[in-house]
Amino acid sequence: MALYSEVVMDHFTHPRNVGVIENADGVGEVGNAKCGDIMKIYLKIENDIIVDVKFETFGCGSAIASYSMATEMIKGKSINDAMALTNKAVAEALDGLPAHKLHCSVLAEEAIKSALKDYYDRNGIPYDKKLFPDCENCAHCHE
């Protein structure tokens, strides 16, 4: 049996939305190089719609696939839809991830939220802080 599903391998070998958006409206970065996983995401937002999204990553195969899938899932959607994207939905769309790789889909969700938070902060839009992960203190990299 292969390590990864066909969907994962497709997104890993042909990742969608890789790159940088200059003058992005929101930028999020989660993870760190110490634990071998960094996700950086750029959002272009017009009238509450995510019109473009790009990502860069220093990560394993499932990380690249998770970020590729997650960015596809929010592209063209409203910021409220993007806020509602869960790691579970990303993992399911990938036809599953091995148990020890599920944190890659968690990072994808967190990176999107982190970029949206940046967008809210830049534009003075009020939000409920509890909706956003506290990356500096989460167990993933700080056990």
Binding site: F12, G36, D37, F58, G59, C60, A63, C141
Partner: peptide, 27 residues
């Protein structure tokens, strides 16, 4: 990161190994 390196090399026919965390299941 080493695991993505190994997967891409595998697709080019090269079987290798890495000491990356992602190949071991630990951080």
């Amino acid at each position: 990161e080493g695991e993505s390196l190994l997967l891409l090399l595998d697709m080019q026919g090269v079987a290798a190994s890495s000491g990356s965390a992602c190949t071991s299941g630990s951080l």
